[in-house]
Amino acid sequence: MAESVLKLKINGFVRRVAVSDQETLLEVLRYTLGLTGSKQGCDKGDCGACTVLVDGEPVLACLSLAKRNADKEILTIEGLSGPEGPHAVQDAFDNAGAMQCGFCQPGMILSAAALLERDPEPDDEAIRHALSGNLCRCTGYTRIFTAVRQAAGIEADRKGVDPRPAPAPPVDPKLP
């Protein structure tokens, strides 16, 4: 059936892609553009693993027709981090040990980032509510809540957590 060349603004760049009308945003992101950070878990909007931000709001890419996103700003997990490093939420998820298998995390992190964008200091109820469209099977959510609170600056780092992996060892000029 109908196909068209579409301009999609993804992670700040305009991408021209050929899409069929029935293709979902998730299919285009994952299989046409190779942006595989957005995951496919349930086929039909039951799990939230495919969450991307469209004009700043979390939506289900698996239930979003690609063609209807032509004039929108799409942000995927790949675009959340920048040259300066991971986004504060990504960093907090890593720091708090919020990820186990990691499969739900791109979606979860984008939902959390959108929450903090509109509510920089959410209470626990707001965090639970905002993430309730993203299923996680590994963690029991406990550490995800911690990560969001850490990213918001509500909860301090756990004492003794190493801030981040050490840089490569300095080259000793005396060595051959």
Binding site: T36, P86, Q90, D91, G97, M99, G102, Q105
Partner: peptide, 22 residues
């Protein structure tokens, strides 16, 4: 015994980790 970060944490948090269907 220390609460260190995971080896693959940031890879997964940034969407870089490749799963089979990726």
């Amino acid at each position: 015994g220390r609460p260190l970060r995971k080896a693959d944490g940031l890879d997964k948090a940034t969407g870089l980790a490749l799963y089979t269907d990726d």
